[in-house]
Simulated assay, not measured.
Amino acid sequence: MLLSTHCAHCPSVLNSLAELVKQGVLGKLEVINLEQRPEVARQLGVHSVPCVRIGPFELTGQRSLAEFRQWAQTSATHEGVRDYIETMLAEGEVERVLTMIAKDAGVMARVIELLDFADEKLNVRLGIGVIMEEYEGRSLLQEYIPQLGKLTQHADPRVRGDACHYLALTHSSNAREFVRKLLHDENADVREVAEESLPTLR
């Protein structure tokens, strides 16, 4: 945990984390006061406190004991990573997710999984779009053509349309067959996306 002496939220966050250590949910807790060690903030790229890192998760601001327990208990699971990504995107923290992908390319699979939930918040879907555009034409996105291709068969036309658009961003001929099938989709919007996407897949 990174804190500062004059932070209003740091004491309650520290108490929550200490309680999780006492309960055995967390194995250890390292606390650094950035007013005494400002170089740590520069090294880690931290701009605000409290800042807590639990496994691959970085959490800033006021969080409840229940939230910290959830993140601690799920930090090593695919579902936990996906839930964390959803939370970060909902809060507008796209850069945080991009940093995770840069460290672990497999995180992209969890981002794509979020498309499968048709009732996602608008911020989440917009955030997914920003991430996909960041990797347009790059090999990492091309690796996930099969996963995106499977979503072109989703029951929700919005998911099919999104998957089709992101397949187009791969610029790979390997995505062409998935997109071509959507030219005959029952939904007019999906057909339109497919028609616009196909020329980009040479």
Score class of each variant (00 low, 15 high):
residue 5 T to M: 02
residue 8 A to C: 07
residue 11 P to G: 08
residue 22 K to M: 07
residue 23 Q to A: 15
residue 23 Q to M: 12
residue 24 G to K: 11
residue 27 G to D: 02
residue 27 G to K: 15
residue 28 K to R: 14
residue 32 I to H: 07
residue 33 N to Y: 03
residue 42 R to E: 12
residue 42 R to Y: 03
residue 45 G to D: 08
residue 49 V to I: 02
residue 52 V to C: 08
residue 53 R to Y: 10
residue 54 I to K: 04
residue 56 P to R: 15
residue 56 P to N: 12
residue 56 P to V: 02
residue 60 T to D: 03
residue 60 T to C: 10
residue 60 T to H: 15
residue 67 E to Y: 09
residue 69 R to F: 02
residue 73 Q to C: 05
residue 74 T to C: 01
residue 74 T to Y: 03
residue 75 S to C: 14
residue 81 V to F: 04
residue 86 E to F: 11
residue 88 M to S: 11
residue 90 A to C: 10
residue 92 G to Y: 12
residue 93 E to I: 05
residue 98 L to R: 13
residue 102 A to Y: 11
residue 103 K to H: 14
residue 106 G to C: 07
residue 106 G to D: 13
residue 111 V to T: 01
residue 113 E to S: 06
residue 113 E to D: 14
residue 113 E to W: 15
residue 118 A to D: 09
residue 123 N to T: 04
residue 126 L to C: 07
residue 131 I to W: 14
residue 131 I to V: 06
residue 133 E to V: 00
residue 135 Y to E: 01
residue 136 E to N: 04
residue 139 S to I: 00
residue 142 Q to T: 00
residue 144 Y to H: 15
residue 148 L to N: 04
residue 150 K to F: 10
residue 152 T to N: 04
residue 152 T to R: 05
residue 160 R to L: 06
residue 163 A to V: 06
residue 164 C to K: 00
residue 170 T to R: 02
residue 171 H to R: 15
residue 172 S to N: 09
residue 179 V to H: 06
residue 181 K to M: 09
residue 184 H to W: 06
residue 185 D to Q: 05
residue 190 V to H: 05
residue 195 E to L: 06
residue 196 E to G: 10
residue 197 S to K: 00
residue 200 T to S: 10
